[in-house]
């Protein structure tokens, strides 16, 4: 059940510039765990120990805010595109 994860440019500093990746996580806390295993240190400021996103991170699934879909309780579907961006981000390029 792969989902595509798209990382906002602020996070790519810790992913060696990698913007998208495929991931088999079935929900958001699992996705954070998988991100952390691939890019150690990345999720320190993205989520808390329960896998809940920090206040300044916005998570979208297929362009819908994940909080409207059930948040951490939402189960990803095959082919979902998950976007992670700081709540107001951009620039510094």
């Amino acid at each position: 059940m792969p989902v595509t994860v798209r990382l906002g440019s602020p996070f790519r500093r810790q992913t060696n510039g990698q913007e998208t990746l495929e991931c088999a996580a079935s929900n958001l806390p699992q996705l954070f765990l998988e991100l952390e295993s691939r890019f150690p240190g990345l999720t320190k400021n993205l989520c808390n120990e329960r896998g809940e996103p920090r206040p300044f991170l916005n998570v979208y699934v297929n362009d819908e805010d994940i909080r409207f879909l059930g948040g951490t309780g939402y189960n990803f579907s095959d082919g979902d595109e998950v976007l992670l961006i700081p709540s107001i981000a951009g620039g510094s390029r």
């Binding site: 916005n58 961006i85 951009g90």
Partner: peptide, 20 residues
């Protein structure tokens, strides 16, 4: 959300995004 994504790609001064 769209403008946040665009601001990461274009060198534009989004007043309420990257110039917030």
């Amino acid at each position: 959300r769209l403008c946040t994504q665009i601001a990461q790609e274009q060198r534009w001064a989004f007043v309420n995004v990257n110039l917030r």
